[in-house]
Design a protein around this nucleic acid. Structure first.
Lengths: 149, 149
DNA sequence: CTTGCGGTTTAGACTCATTCTAACTCTTTA
DNA sequence: TAAAGAGTTAGAATGAGTCTAAACCGCAAG
């Protein structure tokens, strides 16, 4: 179940928010806690439903707002696959995503620096890239524990 | 301007369609010609507008249908960036996409086989991937001629 | 205090890409 | 010529996400 944030995580949140000129609010705490509690790349709706168990008055618009704020503060990444609903991921380490064709589950795949480098190297001169998104589509055989980080 | 398909391209289209159990229709020819004429990763709307110059009665639904058919036959790839409108690309060679933050333009980036290989190698055992999507976000300095293929 | 202010939250209206539906057309097969 | 089947069409429906305007809240100034 969704716990409230521990001291450590609350401080991280607090700090990242204030760096971005934002405040820590009860809603933001709950939404952040939801993301940390179950790192399965939930959609906004999923976050909304989970958060409401803990804070029933929370509105969907606020969940959108909170998540956008987190993305702006670099606390969370958006994960898009084709045009499906955007998913959210609190894993900050550079990583790729693997989407299971059958279950729809999204798994994080560690991205070693040398692979990042070889990717950057394929850019022709004049192309400067800040963000690289890599996503695999396929099947992951069993091994439930491998998801996320 | 949009030309009608030359013999060679019409045959390719014809063949790919019939392999997928589909027929060559005037609408499909026009839509395909639009994609080949300007390889700038147009959205459905852009394809629609260009195609109407040549076939004014064409409907938007048909453009959606044609593009979906082409994707099904492997003639064309969809390109998605975040949740923006889907774009279409008739470049069949394996390649990544580079999206210019400022202009919004999408450029094709050639993907050498050894980079593909190193990417596949980061998948943990049990993960089998058929499709790998790679997209860069950044700025491309000038050099208009480098776009697409 | 209590008033005012800026940032946050809220419900509901709105947008817009995409999908669906049902009617229509065209071509082929019987 | 009729019936069947594929493809096309206009417009309605869907649904994720955004916008708007009102309510709320914590806090600093009076």
């Amino acid at each position: 179940m969704i716990q409230s944030l521990n001291e450590h995580n609350r401080e991280d949140l607090q700090e990242a928010l204030s760096k971005g000129g934002q405040k820590l609010t009860p809603q933001r705490e709950v939404v952040f806690a939801v993301l940390l509690a179950q790192r399965d790349h939930p959609t906004v709706d999923e976050v909304f439903n989970r958060a409401r168990e803990v804070m029933p008055g929370l509105s969907l618009a606020t969940v959108y707002n909170c998540l956008e704020t987190f993305v702006g503060c670099g606390l969370v990444r958006q994960v898009n696959h084709e045009r499906e609903s955007t998913r959210y991921c609190p894993n900050l380490a550079p990583h790729a995503h693997f989407r299971d064709k059958e279950t729809g589950q999204v798994h994080d795949i560690e991205l070693p620096p040398e692979v990042m480098k070889s990717l950057r190297s394929i850019l022709p001169p004049g192309f400067d890239s800040e963000v690289i998104e890599i996503s695999f589509l396929g099947r992951a055989k069993a091994n439930d524990s491998l998801n996320s980080n």
